[in-house]
């Protein structure tokens, strides 16, 4: 398992559109992807799960990936989050 901490930069947090982009990207990953926010575990492959987590701007989260492609997948997901999820 590999993991990295990143910060949400989207001005209005992870609302519908960024959530849709993130869940699509996570679904494309072959690894198990998990987002840890405080006590909460969020499955980013589920847009509903993601949106329900209501991640706000400035929130620090930990992305965990495990699987054969974990390094690559982690890089992809964290870069996407750092770049503002298409916004």
């Amino acid at each position: 398992m590999v993991s990295k901490k990143v910060t949400i930069i989207n001005p209005s947090g992870v609302h519908a559109r960024p959530a849709s982009i993130l869940s699509k990207a996570a679904t494309e990953c072959s690894s198990e992807v998990l987002i840890i926010h405080g006590e909460k575990k969020i499955q980013p492959k589920s847009i509903l799960n993601l949106m329900a987590a209501a991640l706000k701007k400035g929130t620090e989260i930990e992305v965990q990936c495990s699987g054969e492609n974990e390094e690559e997948d982690l890089k992809k997901i964290t870069e996407l989050i750092e770049s503002g999820l298409g916004e």
Binding site: A19, S20, S23, Q43, S46, I47, L48
Partner: peptide
């Protein structure tokens, strides 16, 4: 309309 891309993701969501 872009809003339906999110709907599409939601309806296909595995938690649902």
């Amino acid at each position: 309309n872009e809003i339906f891309s999110a709907h599409l993701e939601m309806v296909m969501d595995f938690t649902l």
